[in-house]
């Protein structure tokens, strides 16, 4: 269980988050959505232990601020929006960085397995810097997968934190990456992801937290949160939520929605 209570974050003089409460359960995919500048990434960074903040974050019942970095790394992995890499490491070497401090014997198997899971089988010896942006992003995903897959002794659920994991990917790879996250949740892991794409969120998330101006506007299942009124207010533009009879949900800006309805 991940529980954050009354999180307030100030960066400089500006208060980015104002007393946010947030919960996520293992076995579920929890999405954080909201317009640009609403505090999504800041909330994620508070949950991963990157920021000092007011309020309390408990991960699997333990106070986040009391955990040493290497203990924390055994409980959660984080995929940042972009990770520039110094020095010419190969894809396999980057993935292996996620295994730091793990059981060494497992390394040789986990690295190709993680790369294959993100559709990059055979990329082991390729130089990271020579890969395309989308491939680099998936190598980094393989790295965090290796980190949560590596064998440890504690047996607690482990958490994946993803910051806009699909923003630089084409639609096929967006679906692939979301399925990796979905599968990890289905196997009992916890997934918390910042999302820009509301349609993908509606498709894959179990729970959604809608942020606007550093406050939680709505929290619940996608069906609860994705309502015309709440979304239009958060994003300051008319949005229509469509639920076609054949199932699923898709969202459109109002004007386009009218065109589609005609």
């Amino acid at each position: 269980m991940l529980e954050a209570t009354d999180i307030t974050v100030r960066l400089g003089r500006r208060e980015i988050l104002h007393g946010v409460d947030f919960r996520a359960r293992p076995g579920e995919l929890t999405a954080i959505v909201g317009p640009n500048g609403s505090g999504k990434t800041t909330l994620l960074r508070a949950l991963t232990g990157d920021l000092s903040q007011e309020g309390r974050v408990r991960l699997n019942g333990q106070d986040l601020s009391s955990l040493r970095p290497w203990v924390l790394a055994g409980l959660r992995a984080v995929l940042p929006q972009a990770t520039p890499l110094a020095f010419p490491f190969t894809a396999a070497e980057v993935v292996r960085l996620g295994l730091m401090g793990g059981i060494e014997a497992a390394e040789a198997d986990l690295v190709p397995k993680a790369l294959a899971r993100v559709g990059l089988a055979g990329f082991e010896g390729r130089y990271f810097q020579e890969l395309s942006g989308g491939e680099q992003q998936r190598v980094q995903l393989a790295r965090v997968l290796a980190q949560v897959w590596r064998p440890t002794a504690h047996g607690q659920p482990r958490w994946l934190f993803l910051d806009e994991p699909v923003s630089s990917l084409d639609i096929g790879h967006q679906l692939q990456v979301m399925r990796v996250a979905r599968d990890y949740a289905d196997q009992g892991g916890g997934v918390v992801t910042v999302m820009h794409d509301l349609n993908l969120t509606a498709m894959f998330a179990d729970r959604v937290t809608l942020l606007a101006e550093g406050r939680v506007l709505a929290q619940g299942t996608p069906a609860d949160v994705f309502r015309d009124e709440a979304l239009s207010r958060a994003y300051r533009c008319p949005i229509r939520v469509n639920t076609p009879p054949e199932g699923g949900t898709y969202l459109l800006p109002h004007a386009a929605g009218q065109v589609a309805a005609e």
Partner: peptide, 16 residues
């Protein structure tokens, strides 16, 4: 080695 990913990611993989 971990720091090659940047300070934030190095912290995420367990480096003090």
């Amino acid at each position: 080695n971990g720091l090659a990913l940047g300070e934030a990611a190095a912290f995420h993989i367990g480096i003090p």
